[in-house]
Lab assay of single mutants.
Amino acid sequence: VTTYKLVINGKTLKGETTTKAVDAETAEKAFKQYANDNGVDGVWTYDDATKTFTVTEMV
Rank of each mutant, 00 (worst) to 15 (best):
T54D: 03
V1Q: 13
N36A: 14
Y4L: 00
V1N: 14
A49I: 15
N9K: 11
V59H: 12
D23L: 04
E28Y: 15
T26V: 07
A35S: 05
E25W: 09
G10A: 11
V55E: 00
N38S: 08
A49K: 11
Q33T: 10
Y4I: 01
N38I: 15
E16I: 12
K32A: 05
A21G: 04
A35R: 01
A21D: 03
N9I: 15
K11E: 08
V55P: 00
T2Q: 14
K29H: 08
T17Y: 15
N38H: 15
K29G: 05
K51Q: 10
K20I: 15
F53A: 01
T45Y: 08
T54M: 07
K51R: 11
Y34R: 03
D41Q: 12
Y4M: 01
N9E: 09
G10V: 14
T18G: 04
K32G: 03
V55N: 01
D41F: 14
K11W: 09
T19I: 12
F31V: 02
G15W: 14
T50P: 02
N9L: 13
F31M: 03
E25G: 10
K14L: 07
D23F: 04
V1K: 08
A35G: 03
Y34K: 03
Q33Y: 05
K51D: 03
A30D: 06
V59P: 10
T52E: 04
K32Q: 09
E16C: 15
T3Q: 09
T17I: 15
K20G: 07
A35E: 01
N36S: 12
V55R: 00
T26M: 14
T45V: 12
A35Q: 02
M58L: 11
G10L: 12
T12K: 10
T19F: 11
A35H: 01
E57K: 04
K14E: 05
K29W: 07
A24K: 14
A49N: 08
K51T: 03
T50Q: 06
T26Q: 13
A35L: 10
Y34F: 09
E57I: 10
W44N: 00
K14N: 10
V40L: 10
K32H: 11
T56F: 07
I8L: 09
T56W: 08
V40A: 03
N38Y: 11
F53I: 02
D23K: 04
A27G: 02
V40D: 01
G39F: 07
T26P: 02
A35C: 11
V40R: 02
Q33D: 08
T12E: 11
E28F: 15
A24D: 05
T19C: 11
L6V: 03
K20C: 11
D41N: 11
E25K: 14
L6H: 01
A35I: 07
L6K: 00
G15T: 15
L6D: 00
T3R: 06
T26R: 07
V1T: 15
V22N: 11
M58Q: 14
K51F: 13
L6N: 01
Y4K: 00
T18W: 11
W44S: 00
T50E: 07
G15I: 15
K32E: 03
V7P: 00
V22P: 10
T26Y: 06
N36E: 12
Q33K: 13
T18E: 15
T2C: 11
L6T: 01
E28N: 05
K29L: 11
D23H: 05
G10N: 07
K11A: 08
Y4W: 06
E28A: 14
E57L: 07
E28K: 14
G39C: 07
G39S: 06
K20R: 08
G42A: 02
T12Y: 14
T26D: 05
F53C: 00
A21H: 03
K29R: 13
V43D: 07
F53W: 05
D41Y: 14
V1D: 13
Y46V: 01
V22M: 10
T26A: 10
K5R: 11
V55C: 06
Q33V: 10
T3H: 06
G42N: 01
T2V: 14
W44D: 00
D47M: 03
T52S: 04
T18P: 02
V40T: 03
E57Q: 12
E25T: 12
D48S: 10
E28P: 00
G10C: 12
T52F: 02
Y34V: 05
F31R: 00
T19L: 13
D48Y: 05
V22Q: 10
D48N: 08
V40N: 02
A24M: 15
M58C: 14
L6G: 01
D23C: 05
K5V: 11
A49Q: 11
T19M: 14
A35F: 03
K51V: 04
G15M: 15
K32R: 13
T12I: 11
K11V: 13
D23Q: 04
W44G: 00
A49F: 10
K51L: 12
G39M: 07
D41W: 11
V22L: 14
T3E: 15
V43P: 03
V59I: 11
G15H: 13
A27V: 03
A27S: 02
T52A: 03
A24H: 12
V7G: 02
K5Y: 13
G10W: 05
A27W: 01
A24L: 14
V43Y: 09
F31Q: 00
D48V: 09
A27H: 00
T56Y: 09
E16G: 09
A24Q: 13
N9P: 03
D41R: 12
Y4T: 01
Y46G: 00
G42Y: 03
L6A: 02
Y46P: 00
V59L: 14
K14A: 07
E57Y: 07
G10I: 14
Y34G: 01
D37Q: 13
K11D: 06
V59K: 09
T50I: 07
T2K: 07
L13W: 13
T54A: 04
D47E: 07
V59C: 14
K5P: 01
V7F: 08
W44A: 01
K51A: 06
A30Y: 14
F53L: 01
G10M: 15
T18N: 06
G15K: 13
L13C: 13
E16F: 14
T45K: 06
A49E: 14
G15D: 11
W44V: 02
D48F: 07
A21N: 03
W44I: 02
A35W: 03
V43L: 14
N9S: 10
D41K: 14
G39N: 12
